[in-house]
Amino acid sequence: MRSIMFFDGSGLSGFFEFLGILSALIILFGFIIVLVSLVLGYFLVKKNKLILPTVFLYIMDNFHPILLKLCLMIGTEDTFYRIGIDFYNRYYYQPFKNAERKVLILPHCLRDIKCPAKLGVNGIECVFCERCLLGSIIKIARENNYEVYIVPGSTFIKRILKEKKPTGVFGVSCYRDLFYGMNYLSRKGIPVQGQPLLKDGCICTSVDVEELITRIKDNR
């Protein structure tokens, strides 16, 4: 015998009332996240201070899509990425400096267009031909106890993390890729530092080499 369940009007009304309360709570929670983020972001950008860094880290790690949409209402996408990168650099500065196994990940787009280096199992294998500045960066990084990889994509990065298990990662990339890379590492609990490119694109990009070298030496 089949039993058929019927909902009366009061039961259906209670269900919609519950949905309404739940929706209101979600909206309120989102509003609180946005408000807290605005306050913390203001101190970061205007006052050059980290206020409640652990709270801001949690919000940045888990609610960055909401923050990005908010930023697009009052600024640009790059502005959001700059704030995020700056925050991660500040937050993880000391933990990264204390890390024992550091890796430096460089993008292949920094190579000269006539670069003779070949793609190997660990990315692009620099031959130090001096056509670009990658060779000089790699030498200095290795002198300061970094393992260095020139990668053509995110697949290589994930394999490096899995096989090498670094305790600190320094990445160089365009603003968007750098932010999402730092966000990914932060959510895995890996101290991270990042240096954005001065000029992005697929080929012949550039980076502030002097600043990069200074930071590599400072974080050894």
Rank of each mutant, 00 (worst) to 15 (best):
K46D: 10
F128P: 06
P65L: 05
I124A: 07
G135A: 12
L68N: 00
L198M: 10
F80V: 10
C174I: 02
K69T: 06
Y93D: 11
I190S: 00
L198A: 10
D177I: 01
G194M: 05
I203A: 12
I74E: 12
V36M: 11
S206L: 03
I74W: 13
M5C: 08
S173W: 05
L133D: 13
E17C: 10
I160W: 02
L178A: 04
E125G: 07
I66T: 07
Y88P: 03
Q193W: 12
S3K: 06
I105G: 02
L22G: 04
S10V: 14
I59T: 04
I21E: 11
G20H: 10
V127P: 00
I83D: 09
Y184I: 02
Y180S: 10
N48C: 13
R159Q: 12
G20N: 11
G9L: 13
N48R: 15
R101W: 01
G120C: 06
K69G: 08
L57P: 03
R187N: 07
N89S: 08
N144K: 12
C174F: 04
L12F: 10
P65W: 03
K164F: 13
I150P: 04
S13W: 02
D78A: 06
F18P: 04
P107Q: 01
D8Q: 05
K47Q: 15
F56G: 02
M1N: 08
